[in-house]
Write a protein that binds this DNA or RNA. Sequence first.
DNA 1: AGGCTGACCAAAATAGGTGTTTGATCTATA
DNA 2: TATAGATCAAACACCTATTTTGGTCAGCCT
Lengths: 192, 192
Amino acid sequence: MSFNQTRDKIVSVADMLFRKFGFQKTSMDEIAKTSRKAKGSLYYHFSSKEELFSEVVQNEINILKAKLGDVVTNNEYTAETKLLEYMMVRMKVMLHSDNYRETLQAGQFDYFEFIDDIRKDLDVWEREQLIIIINEGIDHGEFAIDMEVGVLSDMFLMIIKGLEIPFFLQNKYQEYFPYFNGMAKILIKGMR
Amino acid sequence: MSFNQTRDKIVSVADMLFRKFGFQKTSMDEIAKTSRKAKGSLYYHFSSKEELFSEVVQNEINILKAKLGDVVTNNEYTAETKLLEYMMVRMKVMLHSDNYRETLQAGQFDYFEFIDDIRKDLDVWEREQLIIIINEGIDHGEFAIDMEVGVLSDMFLMIIKGLEIPFFLQNKYQEYFPYFNGMAKILIKGMR
DNA sequence: AGGCTGACCAAAATAGGTGTTTGATCTATA
DNA sequence: TATAGATCAAACACCTATTTTGGTCAGCCT
């Protein structure tokens, strides 16, 4: 097995186990045994358990970014549709990002501080995407905003992220998701 | 001391201690000693620790209801202003409802199931208030809604409650509150 | 009687000590 | 260079003894 094959194997096994048991309940020993590598090998490729987990989470976030990016750059959509799709796609993809979602509990405990950089990067990136959409909407005369675009973008993010906890950590996804589309429409209508 | 005086003393001491140490870290022994009553007295007035805590929480919720009720019945406000004020007042009052806020962690742990009834009552009540405001807005021609009022009310509640966790449990209140007013305005504008 | 007390109980939480598992390192190997 | 596995200190789980806890009850006081 080549360098990259071994590395990928470790990451995919780690992803599976972290998904199944969570960060703390998954040991490096278990990852080593399941991937049929020695523990030393894991530490040859990753400097720590946290770094390995970070990579797993980063992969999930890259998927999220890719799907959201598709929405933002899809020129068959109006700005309004983009905003709506952005919110819907985000929720749907997040539902399967088990490892990232686990880190949302950060507020309660003090694990996952090491993931803060990743989270902040995502925040900045999403803010940029929303600004792009909103500016596009303003240019096309779809939106008429009387406040700064950056602030508006922040508020959107605040709402979407505010819903992450009840949706995913309190398992209200099934209950609330049917309303989500209607709620997004009101939000967007408020920007016209 | 009369029956009611003793009872009030117990409740106010319990409120103080629960506020300070939380439900689990406050013992009935401590409440008894601090209020200079025998433990038996506590159990003469309240059937259990949970019931005592429930009363403390209920008091906080009654305050919240009173202040929100003032907004809803204030006829100097338009429906739009009522909605805006409702959201603002709710956040501000909630900030001081320490004991109720503690129960928001319910999703993570299994304490506080016994408070579910109280929480559901509040949900129902708030839903009613929002429906009142929205209907008023429709009657006065302020709002033009193309969906059922009950559903719209649910969505409003979902957003407000969704923000409780980041605001209060993740201590983002100071950071996010300045944006809250602007966000509420957009939401409300979406209903015109 | 109604309101309150404090000793009392079983169950739960805690403290202290032991052995195992854990994340991480290091030398050896091919 | 890439992988392996023995090895280490620290964290963790596990057991027992002790304390604390929520809750009860017979009786006291007014």
